[in-house]
Simulated assay, not measured.
Amino acid sequence: MGLDMYAMISDESFDREVDFKPGQGVGELHYWRKHPNLHGWMRTLYFEKGGEQPDFNCTPVTLTETDLSRLEADINAGNLPPTEGFFFGASDGSESEDDLAFVAKAREAIADGDTVFYYAWW
């Protein structure tokens, strides 16, 4: 039990940036286990894009090139928000290299015409 976090890719585009239902053609791009500060960053993005699920659990949020640039800057500056939750674990700062590897993979996927989105289950 705990915070499982996924970056997914899809060959389809969605009519909304949040709370959509992905269909076929979805694959995993990246996985994190118990990295709550990144989840907190994604939660903020989700609400900025109009998300309405208060728990931000099992609901997607798309990531654009602009979002990835913001994320990259916040990772490099150490500005992922401290986030806590039941069974979330703790981020300790050692995740930055992996987070930046994700940003690079996500940019490649977007350049290839895929939609990238974040999804967490806890």
Rank of each mutant, 00 (worst) to 15 (best):
M1E: 13
M1A: 14
D4N: 11
M5S: 13
M5R: 02
A7G: 10
M8D: 03
M8K: 15
I9N: 02
I9T: 15
S10A: 14
S10M: 04
D11I: 08
E12C: 09
E12L: 07
S13K: 15
E17V: 10
D19R: 05
D19L: 02
F20P: 05
F20C: 08
K21I: 12
G27Y: 04
E28G: 11
E28S: 12
L29P: 00
L29H: 02
Y31I: 09
R33A: 12
R33D: 13
K34C: 13
K34D: 13
L38I: 10
L38T: 01
H39E: 03
H39C: 02
G40D: 10
M42D: 01
R43K: 15
R43F: 00
T44F: 00
T44W: 00
L45G: 02
Y46K: 06
F47C: 04
E48W: 08
G51S: 11
Q53E: 15
P54Y: 06
D55T: 08
N57F: 03
N57E: 15
N57L: 03
T59A: 08
T59W: 01
P60I: 01
P60A: 04
T62C: 15
T62E: 10
L63V: 11
T64Y: 03
E65M: 10
E65F: 00
L68A: 09
L68S: 07
R70W: 04
E72H: 02
I75T: 09
L80D: 07
P82Y: 10
T83Y: 02
T83C: 10
G85W: 03
G85Y: 03
F88G: 00
F88K: 02
G89M: 11
G89I: 09
G89R: 09
S91N: 06
D92W: 06
G93Q: 11
S94A: 13
D99Q: 08
D99S: 08
L100M: 10
L100D: 04
A101S: 14
V103E: 03
K105A: 14
K105Q: 14
A106T: 06
A106Q: 05
I110V: 13
I110G: 02
I110R: 08
A111K: 12
D112M: 07
D112H: 07
G113V: 10
D114A: 10
D114F: 11
T115D: 08
T115A: 12
V116Q: 08
V116L: 09
V116R: 05
V116D: 07
F117C: 05
Y118M: 03
A120S: 13
W121E: 15
W122F: 09
W122P: 06
W122Y: 10
W122I: 09
